[in-house]
Nucleic acid binder design. Sequence first.
DNA 1: AGATGACCAGATGAACGAATCTGGTCACAC
DNA 2: GTGTGACCAGATTCGTTCATCTGGTCATCT
Lengths: 258, 258
Amino acid sequence: MGATTQRRGTAQRRYERAERILDAATGLVLRWGYDKTTIDDVARHAGVAKGTIYLHWGSREDLFAALMRWDRAQMIGAVRRRLQEDPATATLPGLFGLLAHELHRRPLLQAAMVQDSAVLGKLVARKQTSTTTPDMVAPFGEYLATLREHGMVRADLSLEDHLTLVAAVLHGSLVSLRMMPDSLRVSDERAGELIGDALARAFAAENPPSDAARAVCADATRAFVDQAYAVARAKLRESLGDDLPPEEDLSPAEGDPS
Amino acid sequence: MGATTQRRGTAQRRYERAERILDAATGLVLRWGYDKTTIDDVARHAGVAKGTIYLHWGSREDLFAALMRWDRAQMIGAVRRRLQEDPATATLPGLFGLLAHELHRRPLLQAAMVQDSAVLGKLVARKQTSTTTPDMVAPFGEYLATLREHGMVRADLSLEDHLTLVAAVLHGSLVSLRMMPDSLRVSDERAGELIGDALARAFAAENPPSDAARAVCADATRAFVDQAYAVARAKLRESLGDDLPPEEDLSPAEGDPS
DNA sequence: AGATGACCAGATGAACGAATCTGGTCACAC
DNA sequence: GTGTGACCAGATTCGTTCATCTGGTCATCT
């Protein structure tokens, strides 16, 4: 019993330290850009020694890969939590609106999505970040198929059509908001609403769905997000190893990237 | 009479030469990028002497400004021509679909819109290209107001909302198409359809419009495009001066940027 | 009058060497 | 067992120099 407690204490402290390092790295990359952010800087801001970082990750590259995965897992986790808190959001518009909203709150993921070389520097050339996550294409296709069977979305759009529109709208909203003159800019919140709504309307079938269809859609939406979350967690575990606590032990800070 | 004919022949030849130069410059910028394209290169490809370019434009910068304006005027001209040929396209979805389609055919305007530094090089940092053309914001607002009065679009979206969605979707479609894996990519034609359709659905009012409303909308659409074309032409005239023939004397090649 | 291309001042880019920086290591301290 | 930071090889940066390039000019030719 005591050995188990001690073991848990150590892993918890390691995870918290990893988080501190990831937090520090995030802040510095956003401020100075990837190229200018050194391991030494990260260590100092995280309040650890430089060598300590190598206790968590084997190389600089691994640290920054962990960063993206961490932010992504947190975003999907936040969407999932919102879905759980408010069942009314378990719809197609709800899902896209939440996704857009969470994405708009995450400058690092935004930078990755728009391949912002000011932030990501050499990472841009090296990693061709796709707006689709390959692992999630098939599950998204299945989710859409479920919606289509229940008359929730138009039957005349292919998976490619759907992905094109989702990618275009999510991506475009990030960039065009930045470029919009101040007098014409809408809030991030509003942008999220507009995006969710526009996609929902673009995909909506002619006839209003039945209540039973809505219920199936809600279940399918939650299942899809659960799956996305599981994939994101698995990826993050590749970067954090045993430092990542089991799912039920998430730290309270997760979901608030500050 | 004879002097007038001679005058016209000279101006026509000047305009054609200007077009040859602009055509050559376009091709080279797309191939080598703005930074690598020299005036000497342009002259050689256009089959004129280097000094001849300075008979049309005072500086390298002016030449490349003319380039963008030329392409833009051609795009809007093409949209306008399509509207005239097929009155059924004089609708909101028709307009956006045509715009998207023409934009997808114009790599230079695309590069400007997405601020592609591979193509535009130093021009990117210098000129903060907005996805909105300031001169066209108010006319677009008026066009929307007309549509709203006649129940053609939702009454709950502001001008900012509309612009946000238009900018996001047009812009996003350019970028995300490039980033989509080959197996998932749709054709440019299809992308244009999807975009026009999505925006139309996003903006559509609840109730189907009357035939009278449709007619007003068609008139308003044509008037809006006419106005956009006039603005684009005025801008182009700033770059070409008297070399630009009056509107009715457009060369047959205009509309086919090849 | 109009087109041309050699010329030139200033800009650019490549090469080089020296100084500095940085990712990764590991002996040492606790 | 864990955390540390001095150390070091290689990478990067920066200033200097010089060769080459390029935008713009204008005397010359047609």
